[in-house]
Design a protein around this nucleic acid. Sequence first.
DNA 1: CACACTACCAAGCAAGCGCTTGGTTTACAA
DNA 2: TTGTAAACCAAGCGCTTGCTTGGTAGTGTG
Lengths: 200, 200
Amino acid sequence: MDSVLTELVSSGKITDPQSAKGRLMRAAAHLFKTKGYERTTVRELGAAVGIQSGSLFHHFKSKEAILLCVMEETIIINIARMHEALQHAQSAENKLLALITCELASIHTDTGEAMGVLVYEWRSLGEDKQKYILQLRDEYESLWLSTIEQGKKEGLIEHDGFILRRLLTGAIGWTTTWYRPDGNLTLNALAKQTLKLAIK
Amino acid sequence: MDSVLTELVSSGKITDPQSAKGRLMRAAAHLFKTKGYERTTVRELGAAVGIQSGSLFHHFKSKEAILLCVMEETIIINIARMHEALQHAQSAENKLLALITCELASIHTDTGEAMGVLVYEWRSLGEDKQKYILQLRDEYESLWLSTIEQGKKEGLIEHDGFILRRLLTGAIGWTTTWYRPDGNLTLNALAKQTLKLAIK
DNA sequence: CACACTACCAAGCAAGCGCTTGGTTTACAA
DNA sequence: TTGTAAACCAAGCGCTTGCTTGGTAGTGTG
């Protein structure tokens, strides 16, 4: 467990992955990612952690609350990790590479399944919950946009900032469907290839 | 209605959009895209075209069959349109621009909602149906890969072909979440910006 | 020991789901 | 006019869904 994660757990900002609730959330992320939220039943969810379906509602007040919690904590973790990664980079190119690597890692390491849920299942949230998640997302995106702006000032980037970020979001997010970390292509190599899209 | 579409309709390869079945499929694509397949009920589907829910099953043998039909015809249409577009381009750069423009158009014009369904709802298909759709998809992808290979031979492209195509797939597909054709950015301008990612 | 609290189970309710059924209307050809 | 088939309706069946309820075992605290 990395230091960013332990810090978040001990400060109470996210659920301890070791706890019963944490294990439930991991199981939920797995099922929501592989089967989709709507096709996952509370009975499957219960069985995945070895309890009755009704007992879930002792930990969460609804199925939707589980989904929300998974999404919320995933964003919080990855915002924190991105902040951390940015601190070790100075030039725009290094910062951009750090962001790309971070985002790829968020999809292909521990938070991977939850990130998939975040992207594909947000429509299953009620309207007000969607707004809340979108708000967290804006915080995350501002880290990207300010780095890209620095890149434009340094003459590294020609594209419009918003368009470039959105194209990159798609390119990186889509890797969830094809990239496998245990294959020939390392995550860092993929990050470099992706960086090459953005800069000349 | 473009000539490619009329040809496909009159040869019986796809359903006439004017027919009752065609209107139903368009309504289904709209609901599946905006609400998701699982969250769309046959009662809503019926109401959208002004018939009882049970009457749907006169046209399709199941709800899943509607989804499959929407996906199938959408790929067929867009394969045909891409073939057509490639015939008017010679250089790798022009061909690549044609492919990008075509794919963007597929997402943002008449087949747009159905394309969204194709990308986001394939997990709702049974296993054998998924395989069938994947097969059609391979046909579509081979058009991209051969064009990219031509680009590498002409020294236009540095990236690995498979990786580049997949990054572009994501970048283009993601535009469904943010690009609006009625805004300031034209579809052709967006295509050019996207092309700039791929080539030096 | 008594009390409170957390974590859970067993049972099942109300609602909504996809789909079936039997019958009616409409269109058109013989 | 009659026969046939397509298009549709009204009703509802059987099942699954998310969630509730009432109760119980285990654990720590005064």
